[in-house]
Design a protein around this nucleic acid. Structure first.
Lengths: 252, 252
DNA sequence: GTCAAGAAGATTGTTGACAATCTGACAATA
DNA sequence: TATTGTCAGATTGTCAACAATCTTCTTGAC
């Protein structure tokens, strides 16, 4: 499989803890590499990840790999079964819906908190610029990927404006888990135009300090993403079924 | 009580994985024991937990202890600092408020989902009985602890009625983190009478399938708990300050 | 008396080896 | 043919030792 392994090389060069708090520990480096492979699909859902294989690849012992897998489990990216090891988490459509439902509530809480923050004016210019970027990208049908990236950037910005660290941490984790699916919801120009309207309304609510409106808009936005993502997943599932059927027919 | 395993002794006897999925792995046993000590206050907030000491006590090596501490970190019970080890998490009043804010939203989602579940009638009898118990206990000022336990039991029941497993898992984790503080909110008979009214209204909303009302009630209930807990924490903080002051005066 | 530098001890991070368990294949039996 | 038993290989669980790092105490200079 051409397994490119991306930039595959030992992790050793980056030694940890040279006093700067920005260096990642060995465990975190391993977790980051594995995380990327899962989110990008290089590791397929359901695939087994074996400790020794990862340890050999990165030229470390199994200990840190083991801990890294536990970190990924915390973020829901892998599922660890006793005596069976780690599997890349495979979400059913119902589970995707459940995660989006939680995100809708918590994004509502986040955006309300931001809109009601007396100190929010400090971040408003950046926010205005970010939404303007989004508006520009939404007009160009060719800029699908750039739009997705801009939405992610906007969400990071909102995360920075949020004082509730625990909420931010939960939201980050849930977003990571559905990253593979969220983008499905922004795959058509029509959806992106709808999306940008939501963001414009949210910006207005924040500017005016209208927390109730901000919460309402956030919930609606996530629910729309959810419905779009689920519709796409249903299509993909149907397609896969017919493929399997044709395979079976060929085998018979 | 009655429990069991509360005694302090080596964990060895219970070997793991005798095919039954109910046996706890060594790591989970250690995590459960440590978790209990933190929640009950046997380990004080801010206290350091050292791997070797725990390993010696339970007569295992540091490996499983290390993993158990990571599990507790996932639940927010300990905070792990690089090269410094694990500390029992110490929550500021603001952090307690933040957690309660998240719980309010997610309990709202939970109770709405339950009220809108077409299959909810199956659990209604148990729920009715549980609220009736609560009503009875609320009348008796001497039954404070029993009331707290009954509320916990009712919450467990609602958790079982919930199909969204991820929501349940997040709620369980948040509840565990604030367990030391939630009880503060039910410490007076007046508060318990207010609490039982909320539960009665929630029961009615679930019976009638009124999801919006259920959500509204849940949020209000958690917000009330939050305010009561915070008021108590403020008192405790003030008391501690005066104590420290008198200590300082004595030293001088 | 206060502060800085350095040494000693304590603690976490990492490793490789061994033990326990699981998986899958093959053979024996009904 | 289908079911059960056994075995070998693979994989995770656990351990003890070593390395890297942090903390604390001592020492010395100002």
């Amino acid at each position: 499989m051409t397994d490119p392994n991306n930039t595959n090389s030992p992790l050793r060069p980056l030694r940890l803890a040279e006093q700067a708090p920005l260096t990642l520990s060995l465990v975190e480096q391993i977790a980051a590499r594995l995380s990327e492979r899962i989110v990008t699909g290089a590791y397929a859902p359901g695939q087994r990840i074996m400790e020794q294989a990862v340890a050999d690849e990165f030229q470390v012992s199994r200990g840190p790999v083991r801990e890294a897998l536990r970190l990924l489990e915390k973020d829901g990216l892998v599922t660890i079964l006793a005596r069976r090891g780690a599997l890349v988490t495979k979400l059913s459509i119902d589970e995707v819906r459940e995660i989006f439902d939680i995100r809708a509530m918590l994004n509502g809480l986040r955006d309300r908190a931001i809109a009601e923050d007396p100190d929010r004016a400090r971040h408003l210019p950046l926010l205005e610029k970010s939404v303007a970027d989004l508006t520009r990208l939404a007009r160009d049908a060719a800029q699908g990927d750039a739009y997705v990236e801009a939405v992610a950037s906007l969400n990071r910005l909102l995360g920075q404006m949020l004082s509730n660290r625990r909420l931010k941490s939960i939201l980050d984790s849930l977003a990571l888990q559905t990253l593979r699916y969220s983008q499905l919801g922004l795959s058509t120009p029509a959806r992106r135009r709808q999306s940008v309207q939501h963001w414009q309304k949210l910006l207005k609510a924040i500017r005016e300090g209208d927390g109730v409106a901000a919460e309402q808009i956030a919930r609606q936005r996530v629910n729309d993403s959810r419905d779009a993502a689920i519709a796409r997943l249903r299509e993909a599932e149907k397609k896969q079924e017919t493929q399997q059927e044709s395979l079976r027919r060929r085998a018979a």
